[in-house]
Design a protein around this nucleic acid. Sequence first.
DNA 1: TATTCTATTTGTATAATGCAAATAGTTGAG
DNA 2: CTCAACTATTTGCATTATACAAATAGAATA
Lengths: 141, 141
Amino acid sequence: MRGRCRHRGNTASTGRGARPQPRRIRRFLEPALLLQLHDQPRHGYALIEGLDDLGMESYPADVSAIYRLLYGLEESGMITSSRDAEETGGAPRRVYALTPEGEAYLTDWVAELGETDRLLHRFLEAYQSHMREHEEETGRE
Amino acid sequence: MRGRCRHRGNTASTGRGARPQPRRIRRFLEPALLLQLHDQPRHGYALIEGLDDLGMESYPADVSAIYRLLYGLEESGMITSSRDAEETGGAPRRVYALTPEGEAYLTDWVAELGETDRLLHRFLEAYQSHMREHEEETGRE
DNA sequence: TATTCTATTTGTATAATGCAAATAGTTGAG
DNA sequence: CTCAACTATTTGCATTATACAAATAGAATA
């Protein structure tokens, strides 16, 4: 098994509750979990480690958030779980697998992310074009 | 003056509190307000109308959210406000203007949005490449 | 003077997030 | 055998962000 998991949770820090400035996409962990499960069934810890492979090292993944997402997804029928066959040390693990509903939900998520992407680009373009104009105005003097 | 404002607030609907599935970028309204103020000082209602010009027609803009963001931004020194000189009907309006701190904050936001954009693209690429592989595997049989 | 329009403000419920700590089983050291 | 360390999951709770509703308020006008 690979190196220790360094994602958030069970690590020292200060303060409580949601910090200000959380400027990321809401619930973005959800599609990241679904995509991994589309590949093959996995348990929570493996899903957390797998986030790195999705280029999400920088996305703050709180362990409790992950498990809570998993419970919610199971409750809404997007995934199913069963006890892990191979008990390779540690607490009893549940292995999660994607259902057809979950696959459709992932597709839905991807479409929504595409919309977010368009929104983001329109904003960034508006920003850049505004800045260009602004520079022209104030640049010459 | 232009047509009636059709953004959320003072419009009929059902239910209370944050609905599930809010899958957008958190606090995204904030940079949208700041960018508009970088152009020129405006009051709340004009800022709400201006969202459309930023391609944010589809982004659900709740009026209360906007004003609360404005109060917060003022409290943290990103913007300043003064009473509107021209009182063109309606409630007394405050005109907001960007401060140098606010300008820096906007720059910061843009950098953060760039990071979100990269994250989003890495995910979408991972999704697409995974789906391609998956199709190859299951396609032939 | 009542209604309508423009515009702002406040109340409140719920969801999402972040941090901390508890729980639980396994393995190896002594 | 017992304790510590490691793997992994679960729970508690505080705070922020958001959604919806409604109250407030001044100006114009019918």
